[in-house]
Design a binder for these strands. Structure first.
Length: 723
DNA sequence: GAGCACTGC
């Protein structure tokens, strides 16, 4: 350990002069110096200080918002107006306010415009307000994340001086704090897509603003595609306008997509961040992060440190080592307080990063990509960037996903560095060489290129697009991927043999789950087992519901799960979820539920989400006139319902105890987290197929060969051909 | 006999 501390890490100089690098690469008339803005930041707007969604807290505030909106809580409108008046000078100091008139002129003169605004420009809060007076109908501003939509709406309603949910409101899953009179609505892009499915003309709106377009989520890409149709064809009237807001360079692409829409720039408010690179590449990234942190702790003045690492495993290792190291480090330097930050952590542990530390301490936050966009931690002056991230890649040829460690893009590196310059000038230590930096791709590959596109294709079909391959995709996912999606949808009976959407497909598209699971729900209704299937689908919809126990508790927890779930032990993980759901419901109070979750290593907050999802699925099924019956639980019937959606995810037991997929004959192994691990069944069905060290089936259930013969004799036939 | 980045409806 001592040796480790002695060897210093050498960083080169900040070669490029210190400005946040978006400036240098931007195709902009501004000079670098213009954008290297330094100044007092009065009232940070837009990304409000509290930007983390920690479940239960947010529940409360949303409920309260609803009360406000429906007027159940008495409000003093005079106070609200007073507060708004106080906020006006803050608004007027924002960069975007300085160009208000130019900007309005621009928007008036074009049907579509692209607006590049750097962090802190105030674009997301101010521009929609500028437009409120001149819009006959509503303005929708999309956000990729729920919390962002809620925070923006809350802030803007204060600035505007209204009760949240009246003139200014928001709409996100599980919460609609708006009414028909709402003039300005912040909305997740998923919700706007839903609205589009129900009202293809978006007739309630005269302006749609797509914010954070540079993030290139699948849903943003799709919205832009549909908006192109609207703006140039179905709603070519002067009334309808589209504004695309982006924080980075992709402007040219958006502009071209919308037939050379004008581009407008607004400068932001970022402090300069000096960047340092390594002289030599490193082998052990965990070790290098630790050395860098220890070293900069001894040489740099106050300010917290944010480190970006690829995933949980590396983060936990750094946290452990720093905890051991902290007491033996030189006493002159601040005491290091390491804190992990990744999505799978329980919310109270995530919250720790907002806790202030003592004067003689220094926070070191070890984070995944979650800190790049979703969570903004105040007080960061130093960023340590491993240059790595984990990315889930879908292989449509194999129908499986893999989780890979990959280098980040230049845009992502800039975003990470920028986290050090939000409140004061900062420093960023990149744990790679500058030559490696230059080799990085400019932008992160759009999500749609590495995901399965079954759901997007179904949406296109719903919107009446016949030529999927030739559609004006912002980013075409490619022929193979699209054909695979079409085939999947055809085999789910969502499309007929002429490629048109079926009645079943129309129903599937409105359900808030993946098409496979939507098919299962509808089939379950036909079979008369909708109730239990909704329970299970709701469980499957929640990430990290069953957590993996720490290694020392592994065997104990596995045994306890088996003891608790008798049906699960026979039929597999889907029935296990149903049993766990029923048990959870049957427990008297939250204290008891919490203890029970702990024993079985179940995410307590996750189960609360399950109940919320369950309620919503039941509600949507009700809208489709499909209601739950009240029959008793029939395990085999439930599994048959699931089989209708997961026919291709089946495998047959071989004499050597392995399983081979029915469709292709590939080898699959039951994941050791499954209750069926180590058991031998004639055939299995699984919800997910992931490749790590080998192909693993997850969420596994047993099926009978006869069921396959009944439902899909063609599949069994094709396998014989292969063999 | 294993580990899981991040969102959205």
């Amino acid at each position: 350990m001592a040796n480790r501390q002695n060897r210093k890490i050498k960083f080169g100089d900040d070669v490029s002069g210190g400005a946040v690098e978006e400036a240098g690469t931007m195709k902009n008339t501004q000079t670098k110096a213009d954008t290297k803005f330094v100044g007092r930041q009065r009232g940070r707007i837009g990304k409000a200080p509290v930007t983390v969604d920690f479940g239960s807290d947010e529940d409360n505030s949303e409920e309260e918002n609803e009360k406000l909106a429906t007027g159940r809580k008495p409000v003093d409108i005079r106070l609200i107006k007073q507060k708004a008046a106080k906020l006006l000078p803050v608004r007027e100091s924002l960069p975007v306010y300085q160009v208000k008139n130019e900007l309005l002129a621009q928007v008036r003169s074009a049907k579509v415009c692209v607006l590049i605004g750097e962090t802190g420009s105030g674009k997301s809060t101010q521009i929609p307000q500028f437009l409120m007076d001149e819009n006959k109908k509503g303005i929708a501003v999309t956000q990729p994340r729920r919390v962002a939509a809620i925070n923006l709406a809350t802030r803007v309603s204060e600035e505007y001086g209204c009760v949240l949910g009246r003139e200014v409101g928001y709409s996100v899953r599980f919460n609609n704090v708006s009414n028909r009179q709402t003039k300005l609505k912040y909305i997740t892009d998923g919700m706007l897509l839903r609205e589009l499915m129900l009202d293809p003309l978006l007739s309630r709106y005269s302006t749609v603003i797509i914010d954070e377009a540079h993030e290139r989520t699948i849903l943003t890409d799709l919205l832009l595609g549909f908006l192109k149709d609207l703006i140039f064809n179905k709603r070519a009237d002067d009334e309808f306008k589209v504004i695309i807001m982006s924080a980075t360079l992709d402007a040219e692409r958006f502009s071209q997509f919308f037939e050379n829409a004008p581009i407008f720039f607004v400068e932001g408010r970022m402090y300069p961040v000096e960047r340092y690179y390594l002289g030599q590449p490193v082998e052990d990234i965990v070790d290098t992060v630790i050395k860098t942190v220890v070293q900069l702790n001894q040489t740099e003045p106050t300010g917290d440190i944010l480190c970006f690492l690829a995933g949980q495993e590396d983060i936990d290792r750094v946290v452990d080592t720093l905890n051991k190291l902290a007491p033996v480090l030189p006493k002159e330097a601040p005491i290091l307080v390491p804190m992990p930050l990744y999505a799978a952590l329980p919310s109270h542990v995530q919250m720790e990063v907002f806790r202030p530390v003592k004067a003689n301490q220094r926070k070191v936050i070890l984070a995944t990509n979650i800190a790049e966009t979703s969570v903004t931690v105040p007080g960061i002056r130093y960023v340590v960037d491993s240059g790595l991230r984990k990315v889930k890649v879908w292989r449509h040829q194999l129908g499986l996903s893999t989780l890979l460690i990959a280098p980040i893009s230049k845009a992502s590196a800039a975003q990470r560095a920028g986290r050090a310059g939000r409140e004061a000038p900062g420093k960023c230590y990149r744990l790679y060489r500058e030559t490696d930096y230059f080799k990085l791709s400019d932008n992160t590959e759009p999500e749609i290129l590495r995901s399965d596109v079954i759901s997007p294709v179904l949406m296109l079909k719903k919107m009446g697009v016949n030529d999927i391959l030739g559609w004006h995709w912002l980013e075409n996912p490619g022929r193979e991927s699209l054909v695979a999606a079409l085939q999947q949808l055809y085999s789910l009976n969502a499309l007929n043999d002429r490629g048109q959407i079926t009645e079943l497909g129309e129903k599937m598209v409105v359900l808030p789950v993946a098409p496979h699971l939507a098919a299962v729900l509808i089939r379950a209704h036909e079979l008369g087992c909708l109730g239990p299937v909704i329970d299970i689908v709701a469980c499957l919809s929640v990430d990290n519901l069953l957590m993996s126990p720490p290694s020392e508790r592994r065997d104990e927890v596995n045994e306890r799960r088996k003891d608790t779930c008798k049906l699960g032990t026979i039929y597999g993980d889907l029935l296990m979820l149903k049993e766990l759901f029923d048990l959870y419901i049957s427990l008297a109070d939250n204290a008891e539920r919490k203890e029970w979750c702990k024993q079985l290593c179940i995410n307590f907050k996750g189960f609360k989400d399950v109940l919320r999802v369950r309620r919503q699925i039941a509600e949507y099924m009700g809208m489709l006139k499909m209601h739950e019956g009240d029959g008793s639980l029939d395990a085999k019937l439930v599994l048959k319902a699931f089989l209708s959606g997961f026919l291709t995810n089946t495998a047959i037991g071989m004499p050597d105890r392995s399983y081979r997929t029915v469709a292709t004959g590939d080898l699959v192994s039951v994941h050791p987290s499954s209750l069926l691990f180590g058991q031998r069944k004639p055939a299995i069905m699984y919800i997910e197929y992931v490749y790590t060290v080998k192909g693993y089936a997850r969420a596994v259930s047993m099926i009978e060969l006869e069921w396959l013969q009944e439902v899909a004799p063609h599949l069994l036939g094709s396998r014989e051909k292969i063999n």
